[in-house]
């Protein structure tokens, strides 16, 4: 019975992702009908429509799905690592670290050509994310209370945010504008490049995580227990942090510091499947993350109030209620982590 419902939910999420993908091709600026989109997919007779569908909407939909899955996975890694339900890229300051790296590149100005700039932005973001992760890890050994760790992460976010605004104050106007736009978050991509970057990071991070996935459940029992069961603790912890840092860094570089997806999706997965078994949660986090990413992007593209809403506003509006639901539910019953 339980196995059946898992399978059903898996099928449902795959169907939902398929529908989201297609909706991603239909929704956007300029009214392009269902028939035109369908035609553009199979033959390219109408050049303009074909260009919009294949070169703009398709990569954007892909990036939304891949980034959603990636952020959700980063969130899961961090929640398991810190054994804390409220851990996530945007909570522990990891996104801020990535933003700091990007700010250094975009505001202080490194790399004039686009490709060199892109490399610089990605490296800056990954380095920033990793630096914060290691710092939080180092500090987590001092704090016995997980609550203190979250407050530390929050404070770190504020400090990094403050440094970024100091840098903004001193930067040229055009740099500030592009940085602020980046900061609002967007899955809108200019080239097909981003799909490969984000997709590549997701594959590499997933492989890193899969190499030690079998130990993650044991990790929930505590470090001591995991070690006595034979877990290579340093390798397991390293792979969790590396995959979380890589994903947060690369995705933040291209899509901005996207809030809440990493935090909220693991909760949805645990809530749907009523377990914290990583064999179930890991794949479902990827699927649900992809669906939520594309869903949020659809809301952005639907142009409520006659404009594209900032992605971060949308993810916060979708994600925050989920977190509130988790806290309210936890007040009534024990958590699943």
């Amino acid at each position: 019975m339980q196995r059946l419902s898992k399978k059903t939910l898996l099928m449902v999420s795959i169907v939902v992702i398929g529908l989201m993908c297609f909706a991603g091709l239909l929704v956007g600026t300029g009214s392009i009908g269902f028939g035109q989109v369908w035609k553009a997919l199979w033959d390219g007779s109408d050049a303009t429509v074909t260009f919009i569908v294949r070169e703009s909407r398709w990569p954007r939909t892909m990036v939304a799905g891949l980034a959603g899955a990636g952020l959700a996975m980063a969130g899961l890694m961090m929640q398991t690592f810190f054994k804390n339900e409220l851990a996530g890229p945007s909570v522990l300051g990891v996104s801020s670290g990535a933003s700091m790296g990007v700010a250094l590149v975009m505001l202080a100005g490194a790399g004039s050509s686009w490709v060199a700039g892109q490399w610089a932005v990605v490296s800056g973001a990954v380095a920033g994310a990793m630096a914060v992760l290691w710092l939080v890890l180092a500090v987590s050994r001092i704090f016995q209370e997980q609550g203190s760790l979250l407050i530390f992460g929050l404070m770190l976010s504020f400090v990094l945010g403050a440094l970024v605004s100091v840098m903004q104050a001193g930067a040229e106007a055009w740099r500030i504008k592009s940085f602020v736009q980046w900061g609002m978050g967007s899955f809108d991509v200019r080239t097909g490049h981003e799909t490969w970057w984000v997709g590549g990071a997701l594959v590499v991070a997933a492989l890193i995580a899969l190499s030690t996935l079998k130990w993650y459940n044991a990790f929930l029992l505590g470090n001591e227990n995991a070690r006595s069961l034979g877990a290579p603790l340093d390798r397991v912890r390293g792979s969790m942090l590396l995959s979380a840092g890589l994903l947060t860094g690369v995705i933040t570089a291209f899509c901005g510091p996207v809030a809440f997806i990493g935090l909220a999706v693991p909760h949805l997965a645990r809530g749907f499947f009523r377990t914290s078994d990583h064999e179930v949660i890991f794949p479902s986090v990827l699927l649900i993350g992809a669906a939520i990413g594309m869903f949020c992007d659809l809301i952005v593209r639907a142009e409520f109030f006659g404009m594209q809403l900032p992605l971060n506003a949308v993810t916060s509006l979708v994600g925050a209620p989920i977190i509130i639901w988790v806290i309210v539910r936890n007040a009534k019953m024990k958590s699943l982590l």
Partner: peptide, 12 residues
């Protein structure tokens, strides 16, 4: 090794 701590991985 059975540790003296009582862990609680709630969802397992």
């Amino acid at each position: 090794f059975l540790t003296s701590q009582s862990p609680s991985p709630h969802g397992l």
